[in-house]
Design a protein around this nucleic acid. Structure first.
Lengths: 161, 161
DNA sequence: GACGAATGGTTGAAGCAACAACTTCAACGT
DNA sequence: ACGTTGAAGTTGTTGCTTCAACCATTCGTC
């Protein structure tokens, strides 16, 4: 291997493998808690939570898709399921009749309220409470740097500074 | 909401949302590079890489499954595909005839060698080179803490210290 | 103001992952 | 020896994601 590849140093490799392990494990852990306690996938929860914080609890499909890093087809299928379960309603956008609005129903709101505490508790247990306050701050800084590389257009909702 | 839930502070929430964004985006970015340049999924690459570093380039299915955080059924399906492509071969374990060994073929080795530089380059671009050396060290420490919470049994291969 | 291009969204088919049921084999007790 | 229990893998089914094709509406332009 005498090519021009800049391989990782020992320390870099270790850091990368640990990050990789977290990336591998954390989504599954969050998903498991939500499925078990609230019968929602992590993505469904994210979607409902996003709607619950929007003005009037309504967002355009395309906005919702990019904010949650989903393709439009994926979102469409998920919303179809959530609509069948009564958590979300579709309505045409009066301002642009190509567009579709997704609105959180009353049941959807109740679902978010019921699901949030368990989810937050799990986030605390797995991440926030496992770290010192200083580490949380460091983590925040580092992740912001990475988000800027991964999402230059700033599509994702991540409370940028 | 006057329940006993300990909600996240502003700073904690920001840190969490950024981590969440990275977790959401990074796997997709790595997957895209590998599919584009090497026609492999990230998981397939991980599996081949793991085998390439094992003694004699052989591992038991069950060990491979837990080391890559996969269920046994999932691994079995993936190995079937990789076997069809000629990168891996199955053989019975002479020591325990319940067990199956997965062995990297010569073509599999060549595939790893050909794929690694591009993958490493992407890891550098998206993570390592985006951070200062001090941040890489911090990241390593923080991720080790999280891995210990997420994987108490230490099943995953992550170069623990 | 009509036509082509672009945007917003839905649908159906194909591929991959999770779960359950089943098969085979080893280990152990009697 | 014999039967039981548990471990190791494989296979089939179901559900979600991706991809491609498609329809409707709006925008740009002449």
């Amino acid at each position: 291997m005498s090519d021009g590849t800049r391989w990782l140093s020992r320390d870099e490799l270790v850091a990368w493998m640990r990050l990789q392990a977290v990336i591998e494990l954390l989504p599954g852990a969050l998903d498991a808690q939500l499925r078990r306690d609230s019968d929602l996938t992590h993505y469904e929860y994210l979607l409902l939570a996003m709607l619950s914080e929007a003005p009037d609890r309504v967002l355009r499909m395309s906005h919702l898709a990019s904010a949650t890093n989903a393709t439009l087809p994926r979102l469409s299928h998920v919303v179809t399921r959530l609509e069948r379960d009564g958590y979300v309603r579709r309505e045409p956008d009066p301002a642009d009749r190509r567009a579709t609005l997704a609105r959180l129903t009353e049941e959807g709101w109740d679902k978010v309220v019921a699901s949030a505490p368990g989810h937050v508790h799990e986030v605390r247990r797995l991440v926030v409470d496992a770290l010192t306050p200083e580490q949380v701050t460091e983590l925040s800084t580092i992740m912001l740097t990475l988000v800027r590389v991964l999402d230059p257009a700033n599509r994702l909702y991540h409370l940028d500074d």
